[in-house]
Amino acid sequence: MTKTGKQGVFFIALLLSVILLAGNGYANEGLVAAGTESSTAWWVWPLLLLVVTFVMGIAAVLGGVGGGVLFVPIISGFFPFHLDFVRGAGLLVALAGALAAGPGLLKMNLASLRLAMPVALIASSFAIIGAMIGLALPTQIVQIALGVTILGICVLMLVAKKSTVPDVPKADKISSVLRIYGVYQEASTGEIIDWKIHRTWQGLVLFIAIGVMAGMFGLGAGWANVPVLNLLMGAPLKISVATSKFLLSITDTSAAWIYLNKGCVIPMMVVPSLIGIMGGSFVGVRLLKVAKPGLVRWIVIGMLGFAGLKALTKGLGF
């Protein structure tokens, strides 16, 4: 298949899912509350979930947007599942993605365990708190908060810069004591570069907020981890991205357990989503090598914004 052919297929698939979703989403608005015998066969919803998350996986890779931040807004916006279960599934999906990439990132020394651990201590503890708050608050409030947060994330994605090799004049005291520094290899030249970080305390404080948010909404926090590690603390972009992904595996583990122990995990939702997203991301990576349609990022952020608005309206009761 030609390059444009592949792009075409992807766009059609994306469009189809959007139509399907919108159609079903609105059809289900009219569904009476629990107890109604659904006329659709039992496998329709899981299958739809599989297809949608598959496209989501491809879109995440091609669009440069984490699958973990797409799942909860889009699934909760367009599927009839309750937000409690969507968040539980979302955390497990983000967790699985981070676990899959983790070994490679660690072995290649792209993710820094030394950098991750102090951060993880903060983020995972507060993710627990975030999860507990998120499950205690009334769903309406969480929907509104989710909507606002998603819109904020969209803005952040459009605005945030990235710094390949930030200028860190001097490592700060705490990162020196903890020996958080290292070397990495520049991608194009193969040149070996030293890295160190600063503003560690400020970074750790921000990770409190990131942890709470991850736990409360069931979102993968890559979009937040990377700017804090890269722009604030000054880790090179390569190390930041890799460490951020690895960090997710720890943060999401703690939040996932809270949701799991609360009963927010329905296998019929979680497993098709897992298979879909992982399958989609592998296909996305293959497509990436062939062509990267720049338009995809705009479409994805657009859908995310749309989902954010939907969450907001759901929460406000429209």
Partner: peptide
Amino acid sequence: QALGVLAAFAEAGTEELDE
């Protein structure tokens, strides 16, 4: 494993940094 790592970089919009 290599695919998983590339996916991680791609999702951050930084696939050009992948090994």
